[in-house]
């Protein structure tokens, strides 16, 4: 199951992240996980949020531009070669990993990584076939 990720371009300067978090706090929205990519002038903040639609609305009403993209949360065995076998599956199907980052829901035997792939639908199909656990919102956020 695909997850919605919100991306926001923010200037690479002090206070930029504070501003975003402040907006979400005011709207009583919790960030499940995030990653920040930086270049010289700006950063791209990517957020995984349970109620992403409300978050998007809150951010946009503060004059921020929010891009929504599909990502997968994949459960990875917490053991040597765990990630490798998943990457091999993606690789043998010509699916490219644009970027990935951890989800803060690591239980003992598994870690969860967020994958941004060039073809998420195809990836779900082949990962399911390979018995890799792709997590849905329910499993991630609880209900």
């Amino acid at each position: 199951m695909k997850l919605k990720q919100l991306s926001i371009m923010i200037p690479n300067q002090p206070g930029a992240l504070v501003h975003i978090c402040g907006i979400l706090q005011k709207a009583q929205i919790n960030i499940s996980t995030l990653t920040l990519a930086d270049t010289a002038d700006f950063g791209i903040l990517r957020l995984i949020i349970k109620d992403w639609e409300a978050a998007k609305k809150a951010l946009e009403s503060n004059a921020l531009v929010v891009k929504v993209s599909d990502v997968l949360a994949i459960s990875i065995p917490n053991e040597p070669g765990g990630l490798l076998s998943i990457l091999n599956t993606l690789n043998s199907n010509q699916i490219n990993v644009e970027y990935m980052y951890g989800f803060s829901l690591a239980t003992g035997k598994q870690s969860v990584q967020i994958f941004r792939l060039n073809d998420p639908d195809h990836a779900i199909e082949i990962l399911n076939k390979a018995h890799v656990c792709v997590l849905g919102a329910g499993e991630l956020f609880g209900n």
């Binding site: 371009m9 990519a37 700006f42 791209i44 990517r46 531009v65 929010v66 891009k67 993209s69 941004r116």
Partner: peptide
Amino acid sequence: EINDKLIGDTVSEVT
């Protein structure tokens, strides 16, 4: 000015 038509979620798209 960026807007929803312009923004990407990867650095390579933006550069």
